Computed example of a mutant assay.
Amino acid sequence: MSRFLMAAAPVGLEALREELHLARAGGYCAFEGWVRETNEGREVRGLAYESYEPLALTEGQAILDEAHERFEISEAVAMHRTGSLKVGDVAVWIGVSAPHRDAAFRACRYIIDQIKARLPVWKKEHYCDGDTQWVACHHTHGLEENSGDGECHGHHHP
């Protein structure tokens, strides 16, 4: 069963979290990525995500499977939005449960870093001055150490 979702509308995060509340798990770690009001000094009024969904779903599930192999976790669930989002909306959500907290924290970080590097998702920012711009991002720096910066994902828009 796939635990990775691409969602064109807001998702009930409590329902996703409930999938992680397992008797074998002693803890839970989550990450939420939000649309922020500025980027590189420009005021942002919102953004739009586009995705090649068949590949995004396959690659997202592969990332979750890798997290299970690399870390001693009970379960992992992740969701990435598509479509129009406004400032404050949740753009990406990841939850991991594990018997011990260190594995949950490390797996959560691994998952977000891999999503940013590998998912075919593109972001178009809409600025308050009326301008729009596709934000081209490649955040592969430091993935082996599970470090990474930046807000956007994997590939340039075609």
Rank of each mutant, 00 (worst) to 15 (best):
R45S: 13
Y110M: 03
R109C: 06
N39P: 01
R101G: 02
H138R: 14
E53M: 01
R3V: 03
P54F: 12
E32P: 09
T140M: 15
A104K: 01
V121Q: 01
L22R: 14
G95Q: 04
R70H: 10
R109Y: 10
S97R: 06
P99C: 04
Y110E: 03
E72Q: 15
I63G: 06
M1D: 09
Y127W: 05
R81C: 03
E14S: 15
A56H: 05
R36P: 00
T82I: 15
L55Y: 15
E145N: 09
A15I: 00
I115N: 03
A76P: 01
V135Q: 14
S51Y: 11
L5A: 11
C108V: 10
A78Y: 05
L85Q: 07
E144L: 11
E53S: 06
Y28R: 13
R118G: 00
R42P: 03
A15D: 02
M1V: 05
V92A: 10
M6C: 09
E53T: 07
N39D: 10
T58Q: 13
R45F: 11
I115R: 01
P54E: 12
V96E: 00
D129S: 12
Y127M: 00
E151F: 15
G41D: 04
A56F: 07
G88F: 06
L20T: 01
E144R: 10
R36C: 05
T58A: 14
Y49S: 01
E66H: 10
L20C: 11
G88M: 04
L47P: 00
W93T: 00
E144N: 07
G41S: 06
K116D: 00
D89A: 03
T58S: 15
K116W: 05
K86M: 15
V92I: 08
C29R: 12
S2W: 13
A98K: 02
E75R: 15
A91G: 11
E32D: 13
T82L: 14
T140K: 11
R101N: 03
W34C: 11
G26F: 07
H68Q: 08
H156P: 10
T38F: 13
A107H: 03
M1R: 13
V35P: 05
R42Y: 09
T140D: 12
